[in-house]
């Protein structure tokens, strides 16, 4: 089995095919979209491939250590140009092919007009633990 991280972006990803912003969909289209996302996660739970998934708020900041005795330095909010993660899902699947297949399904979530969004998702393999046998 191999773990993959599926990343969804607020911005920074190439433009999707169906790019109408969500607040210009009809309320029913919003509902259908959310249902699709929930059912996708539920299906992965049933197949035993779901590990974790969370959504992130769009706001955030940079933080770094500023030496002993000083509070950490913060910088934010993020500039408009920044690549911004919207959420993630961790899946544990047989191989890369299966991970790509699932990412494709997720990207087909319906958007405006009920048509698939064709959103670009980032797929990143986890670096795994060293196996016991690899001396």
């Amino acid at each position: 089995m191999a773990k993959y991280l599926l990343l969804k972006h607020y911005r920074g990803a190439p433009d999707p095919v169906n790019s109408t912003p969500m607040d210009q969909w009809t309320p029913d289209e919003v509902t259908t979209h959310i249902q699709y996302m929930n059912e996708f996660a539920d299906r992965l739970k049933e197949t035993g491939e779901f590990v974790d998934g969370q959504a992130l708020a769009p706001e955030g900041e940079w933080v770094r250590y500023d030496g002993p005795g000083s509070p950490p330095v913060t910088d934010g909010p993020f500039p408009e140009t920044k690549d911004l993660i919207a959420g993630w899902m961790v899946i544990d699947v047989e191989n890369r092919q299966r991970a790509v297949e699932l990412a494709g399904e997720l990207s087909a979530a319906p958007g405006a007009g009920g048509r698939p969004i064709h959103e670009w998702l980032e797929l990143r393999p986890f670096l795994s633990q060293a196996p016991e046998t690899a001396e």
Partner: peptide, 11 residues
């Protein structure tokens, strides 16, 4: 006339 800044994706 509504053009909110919401990106073209849900969660």
């Amino acid at each position: 006339d509504a053009n909110g800044p919401w990106p073209g994706s849900g969660e």
